[in-house]
């Protein structure tokens, strides 16, 4: 039984390594769509691009867990039947090891069902409440109870060259304001150093960059559009591109903003701006903060320049099962292997 279950699991995982999966490899999905054209529909209809969330995947995992549990029942008999204490200990070690595997599988499945992972995209100085609409993206398990309104989060600042343990990285200073009247909590978060608060963890997100404020006015100074854009970095062929765009429907405008300086230094930032009106480029050129450019009766300026970053809010209620499983598995191995070594020495 275990053989067939592992074989099915292996086939599923190998398929998922070949076919890019949704929410995991979005860039590769676009490549595949381009390559296969209409043929990509076959992949979507067969669910080959969503293997990890398919019922078959979870069925196989569940059956493997049952198989492991049944296997352990057999091993318990071996413990009682063994006469030598060392042999007993060896079987006991293997039972503990397999129970630990069960704990790990249970932890993984329960985490998947009840998990909450929300991503905030915040610009320095911005505050967002813990409501479903304020998250940039939410990955929630099917059984997540949907608790919101727990806090408000403010991004006080982003340091792109934070130094820690001899290494440089980006870090964010956040302030949490609990829903009820309580003292706010301020902390610096970075890779390896999340802020833990009431079962939630606040991790420094996977992306950060410059956030220029785009202000569009007419010639009389009347404001038409004002908002921070978030320039996110991605690889395009051989160069790194940090860009974003805004759309102003009332004027049929699309404004592309790209940072020109490679190091994204805030003091020397120069932006390449391209303005399209009804798909026709009406302005293209460089722009530094506070400068103003004019086109077609409108003025464009960047009055303020800040940084932005993602903050990941994670709730893994059952992750402790995986931790406990890991250490229990190691304990099982020690209990199982030490008697083996002792018995060999005695021989």
């Amino acid at each position: 039984m275990a053989f067939f279950l592992i074989a099915i699991l292996l086939v599923l995982v190998v398929l998922s390594a070949l076919v890019p999966q949704k929410d995991v490899a979005q860039d590769r999905i676009l490549d595949w769509e381009e390559f296969l054209g209409d043929g990509y529909v076959v992949i979507e209809k067969t669910g080959l691009d969503q293997i990890y969330s398919s019922p078959l995947f979870f069925l196989v995992l569940g059956l493997l867990a049952i198989n492991l549990a049944a296997g352990n029942l057999k091993r318990i008999k071996l413990v009682f039947r063994a006469e030598k204490p060392l042999v007993k200990a060896r079987h006991l070690g293997m039972i503990i090891f397999h129970l630990a595997l069960l704990l790990i599988i249970a932890g993984v499945i329960l985490n998947y069902l009840f998990r909450f992972h929300g991503v905030f995209g915040l610009t320095e100085g911005q505050t967002a409440r813990d409501t479903e609409q304020k998250y940039f993206r939410i990955f929630a398990g099917p059984l997540y109870p949907g608790q919101f309104g727990r806090f408000a989060i403010e991004l006080a600042g982003v340091d792109p060259v934070y130094e820690t343990a001899g290494a440089r990285t980006a870090a964010a200073e956040i302030t949490l304001r609990p829903a009820i009247q309580e003292t706010p909590i301020t902390d610096t978060i970075l890779i390896n150093h999340p802020l833990a608060w009431r079962g939630l963890e606040f991790h420094f997100g996977s992306k950060t960059g410059l956030s220029p404020e785009v202000l569009v006015t007419d010639t009389s100074g009347q404001q038409i559009f004002r908002s921070f854009v978030r320039l996110s970095t991605r690889r395009v062929e051989d160069r790194t591109l940090s860009s974003d765009f805004v759309i102003i429907p009332s004027k049929n405008l699309k404004i592309n903003v790209e940072v020109q300086s490679a190091d994204e230094a805030i003091d020397s930032a120069v932006f390449v701006v391209a303005v399209e009106q009804a798909h026709v480029i009406v302005y293209q050129g460089t722009l530094t903060p506070v400068d103003t450019v004019a086109f077609g009766g409108l003025r464009l300026t960047i009055p303020r320049l800040r940084r932005w970053c993602y903050v990941d809010v994670v709730e893994n209620q059952f992750l402790n099962l995986v931790f406990i499983g890991f250490w229990t598995a190691l304990a099982g191995l020690v209990i199982g292997f030490v008697p083996r070594l002792i018995s060999r020495r005695k021989q």
């Binding site: 390896n192 999340p194 963890e201 990941d312 992750l319």
Partner: peptide, 12 residues
Amino acid sequence: HVAWGRYWAWDP
């Protein structure tokens, strides 16, 4: 999980 806030991301 400690570093990035996710314990498994199906990274290659």
